[in-house]
């Protein structure tokens, strides 16, 4: 059983939970039924544990886990552990919340120092807010060019897929895979 992990991070209310829920295959309606048998990951899940956790099963041998970082544990031990063997990191940022950009920048730097996993920034565009463009956000975050920043709508499946695909392409391009 190969279990791979992607970490979704970002400031409070940036859209992390929404992002994970949009892409996970765990259906909250169905999880109760699943508790009676062990799924492919060897884990029994139910609504009581389906928090910031998502899963994409490829086949009986390979599964991708998606973990959200908890807001209340800022920059502590848990975050290092979560990031440690992650395939990649996605930092979700609300494009309209300029006040949160400092925090987002700290988070990005935290992961860049603590892990060598590829990282992309998902710039969540809330339609009713006047959000920053990718270039403006890049400047404000002090983001080097090698880190992609991608506008997205965390509620939209296509949009979230696009971000994940960018991250996966980055992982491939880095040549860490075998």
């Amino acid at each position: 059983m190969n279990r791979y992990k992607i970490v979704i991070s970002g400031p409070f209310a940036a859209g992390k939970t929404t992002f994970i829920n949009t892409v996970t295959e765990i259906d909250p309606v169905n999880t109760e039924a699943k508790t009676t048998h062990t799924n492919e990951a060897g884990i029994k899940d139910s609504t009581t544990v389906a928090m910031d956790f998502g899963r994409i099963t490829l086949d009986g041998e390979n599964v991708l886990h998606i973990f959200g970082t908890p807001g209340q544990f800022r920059f502590n031990y848990m975050w290092s552990i979560l990031g440690k063997d992650a395939l990649g990191i996605i930092v979700v940022v609300d494009s309209g919340e300029k006040d949160k950009f400092d925090e987002a920048r700290d988070m990005i730097n935290f992961f860049r120092v603590k892990t060598d996993a590829p990282l992309v920034v998902a710039l969540n565009q809330f339609e009713n807010k006047n959000g920053l463009t990718e270039d403006e956000a890049r400047k404000l975050l002090g983001l080097p060019n090698k880190i992609p920043i991608i506008s997205c709508d965390a509620r939209n499946k296509e949009s979230v897929k696009h971000v994940l695909l960018e991250l996966l392409r980055l992982i491939l391009a880095r040549g860490d895979t075998y």
Binding site: D85, K161, L172, T177, Y178
Partner: peptide, 20 residues
């Protein structure tokens, strides 16, 4: 064991996501 994922896994995951 590798710490990185198999190339094959990532490629299949990409295909899988594209189809969802």
């Amino acid at each position: 064991k590798r710490r990185g994922a198999s190339r094959n896994f990532i490629i299949r995951l990409i295909e899988r996501l594209k189809r969802v």
